[in-house]
Nucleic acid binder design. Structure first.
Lengths: 135, 135
DNA sequence: ATAGAGGTTTACGTTAACGTAAATTGCATA
DNA sequence: TATGCAATTTACGTTAACGTAAACCTCTAT
């Protein structure tokens, strides 16, 4: 919104390469109303905002959200929440997500320490092997 | 393995209820060679080990692993790794998983702080509304 | 002028992870 | 003995998130 905004643009192929996905995926996200890029005739033109959106979609996916869920989060974030009801449902939703994320944190931590165990055992056995231990 | 092992057993329905899934899912995991419970005639009988396995499967799913991936992890964990080659591939795999988990941790943290932002903004607006602010 | 690289739409195919229905079985209880 | 509950197998249906193919346009380079 600044006077001389750095308005970079991208083609679908450029974005696809940058994020290591296919153009098909990006078009699919648009089909699901997760994006709405500008056009130059037939061709899609993506701006910085679109690029950020795409980033958010992919982060959501990494966290196990479905595209439908990501869409809901977008709508929440985009909507200028006027009514107290909307604000409250919004708070409820963030609480839900927070719970899921906390569970994931827990899961990750336990898995991490388990990986630690496996690794140390592996390394021990390896050094035993190197010492020429046959048993 | 103790003398008098607390060998609890469970039916498929019991496990399903405990973990809030359907018997169908449990049978499916077996079909995919993720479990292999004992039988009493036709009926499946699950022991403590099986119950732990199921727990691990569900944790894996929460973390976004496919059943095939979970299976691989099981095989890794179960295999008595004798050769140095196996040990090394094992270390490689744990490294890969660790990278994914770290990425997820990063994602979760940023998402968490974003949720914080949304929440505080919501609460502010709500208290404004309560003060009778119309604008 | 033609070839090639990228873009477009339309539409059908694919995979994972179950859901769901049908038909059967065994056990316990009214 | 009949009824109902929980288990079983077999098999087809379903949804999400794309993959893939066909047929087309448009620009640039040779």
């Amino acid at each position: 919104m600044s006077y001389y905004d750095t308005e970079a643009t991208y083609t679908i192929g450029e974005l696809a390469r940058e994020f290591s996905i296919t153009p098909r995926s990006i078009r699919f996200y648009e089909e699901q109303s997760l994006m709405n890029p500008a056009r130059t005739g037939q061709n899609r033109i993506y701006g910085n905002k679109d690029r950020v959106r795409l980033k958010l979609i992919l982060r959501g996916k990494r966290l196990g959200f479905s595209l439908a869920e990501v869409k809901k989060l977008f709508e929440l974030y985009d909507s200028n929440p006027d009514s107290a009801v909307q604000l409250k449902t919004m708070l409820q939703l963030t609480e839900q997500k927070r719970a899921v994320l906390n569970q994931q944190l827990e899961d990750i931590n336990t898995l991490m320490s388990e990986l630690d165990d496996v690794e140390t055992r592996c390394r021990e056995e390896l050094s035993e092997l190197r010492r020429g231990n046959i048993a």
